[in-house]
Write a protein that binds this DNA or RNA. Structure first.
Lengths: 151, 151
DNA sequence: ACGCAAATAGTGTTAAAACACTTAAATTTG
DNA sequence: CAAATTTAAGTGTTTTAACACTATTTGCGT
């Protein structure tokens, strides 16, 4: 559905404003879908995000700041989220030998199992997943325009 | 900056996954910018969102459900947000005469003044505003691709 | 070596989101 | 018309985000 219809907007919007609102609206829409898929697994979106990051650097771990710098939402509370993941058994924390300020966080076997259970493709390349109506070139164009948008 | 650089991603991503992450990342980036501009005015993003909606329907008011249906984030707590706006003097609430279940919310003069103070163009069409690097046709294409993405 | 600034992780607190539930009024149905 | 259903708004509670702050360790300059 077009943005104007979703938002029941009557007047036509300036094009850049339409782009801004559409980004925010689409992200909220995506978040909602993601939360619905994640709920049965007892994990939140930011926690899932961290697990994906840890999985990406596996078998190496990452410090808390490394995780933060790779997160979509940089203002979130990584220490507490990591602690949640540790309590759930999805991540491990070991003090860094060289620098005692640091803590190295690693995804656990259980955590890797969780990710494969969730089946990431459900959100990305799966048939019914979000964005399936876009062709690959269209998806590429979309990502490029977003990169340019943030410039 | 390109998404991969922002997220310090090493491996190449599937195109649709790249689009999904880019939408989420860009929205978070936008939110951050918006919060920075809004802070001096003592108003939050969802509150600003509601004020814009009320301003759009001025001089007519809207019921709480009408507001909710026009919001970017549909799961938020409109009653409490409206109460905050009322306490700050930016909105007014009057019971609906015909249907006593309903309450009609209207933007106040102070609220309209606040919006013009914030100068919405700062986020949309202003020179240094977000998305200023995009040409108008590019912004239009971006919005269309996002519409299609949600299909 | 000493003091100071930067870096790193974590905590405390307030405000907000998430979600289920409640109250009240209108509408439908038997 | 009475009871049940639906609709609208609001509330209670838990979890989380936001933001500023603290504590500890490291590195650096002198």
């Amino acid at each position: 559905m077009k943005l104007e219809a979703e938002l029941k907007s009557t007047k036509p919007m300036p094009v850049r404003q339409r782009a801004v609102l559409n980004i925010l609206f689409t992200a909220s829409w995506l978040d909602c879908h993601l939360a619905r898929v994640l709920r049965p697994f007892g994990i939140t979106h930011p926690q899932y995000n961290i697990l994906r990051i840890l999985n990406g650097s596996f078998p190496n771990g990452l410090s808390v700041l490394d995780i933060k710098s790779r997160m979509l939402d940089r203002s979130s509370n990584v220490s507490r989220l990591v602690e949640k993941l540790r309590l759930s058994g999805f991540a491990e924390r070991v003090p860094h030998s060289g620098d005692r300020r640091m803590v190295i966080v690693t995804i656990s076997v259980t955590g890797k199992q969780l990710l494969s259970d969730i089946d990431t493709t459900q959100f990305t390349d799966h048939e019914g997943g979000p964005g399936h109506k876009l062709s690959e070139p269209e998806a590429a164009t979309l990502a490029e325009l977003l990169d340019k948008f943030r410039d």
